Amino acid sequence: MRKGRFWASLLSFILVIVCGVGFVYRAQAARHYVNSTTPTFFIHGWGSSYHAEQHMANAAKRAGVTKTIIWANIAKDGQVTFHGHIKQGARNPIIEVNLADNKQMSYKKDGEYVFKVISAAKKKWGFSTMNLVGHSMGNLGIMYMLRDYPNSSQLPTLKKQVSIAGHFNGGIGFGYPKGSRIDQSGKPSVEEEHFTELKDLRKTYPTTARVLNLYGDLQDGSHSDSEIPVNSAKSLKYLVAQRAKSYQEKEFFGKRAQHSKLHSNRQVDRVLIDFLWGK
Score class of each variant (00 low, 15 high):
5 R>Y: 13
6 F>I: 15
11 L>K: 08
14 I>D: 01
16 V>L: 15
16 V>Q: 02
22 G>D: 10
28 Q>N: 13
36 S>N: 05
40 T>I: 04
43 I>K: 02
43 I>G: 05
46 W>I: 14
47 G>V: 06
48 S>A: 14
49 S>V: 03
57 A>W: 05
60 A>P: 03
63 A>M: 10
67 K>Y: 11
67 K>P: 00
68 T>W: 01
70 I>F: 09
72 A>S: 15
79 Q>D: 12
80 V>E: 06
81 T>D: 13
88 Q>Y: 11
90 A>D: 12
90 A>T: 11
94 I>Q: 12
96 E>T: 08
99 L>W: 13
101 D>V: 04
104 Q>L: 09
106 S>K: 01
116 K>N: 11
119 S>E: 12
120 A>V: 01
122 K>N: 03
123 K>I: 03
124 K>L: 11
126 G>W: 11
127 F>M: 07
130 M>F: 04
131 N>S: 06
131 N>Y: 09
134 G>M: 02
139 N>D: 08
144 Y>D: 03
147 R>F: 00
149 Y>N: 15
153 S>L: 06
154 Q>R: 06
157 T>L: 10
158 L>E: 02
159 K>D: 15
163 S>E: 08
167 H>V: 00
169 N>M: 04
170 G>A: 11
175 G>R: 04
175 G>C: 05
179 G>A: 12
179 G>W: 09
179 G>R: 10
181 R>E: 15
181 R>N: 12
185 S>Y: 08
186 G>T: 07
189 S>Q: 04
196 T>F: 00
196 T>Y: 09
200 D>H: 08
201 L>K: 07
203 K>I: 01
205 Y>Q: 02
207 T>Q: 15
209 A>V: 07
211 V>I: 15
214 L>Y: 06
216 G>T: 03
218 L>E: 02
221 G>H: 03
222 S>F: 10
222 S>K: 08
224 S>I: 10
226 S>F: 11
227 E>C: 01
230 V>N: 11
232 S>T: 03
232 S>I: 03
233 A>C: 04
237 K>A: 07
238 Y>Q: 05
241 A>F: 05
243 R>G: 05
244 A>Y: 02
245 K>Q: 13
248 Q>P: 08
250 K>E: 15
252 F>G: 02
254 G>K: 09
254 G>E: 10
255 K>N: 12
258 Q>N: 10
259 H>G: 06
259 H>C: 05
261 K>V: 01
263 H>R: 12
264 S>N: 13
267 Q>V: 05
270 R>K: 15
274 D>I: 00
275 F>T: 06
275 F>L: 06
277 W>H: 06
278 G>H: 04
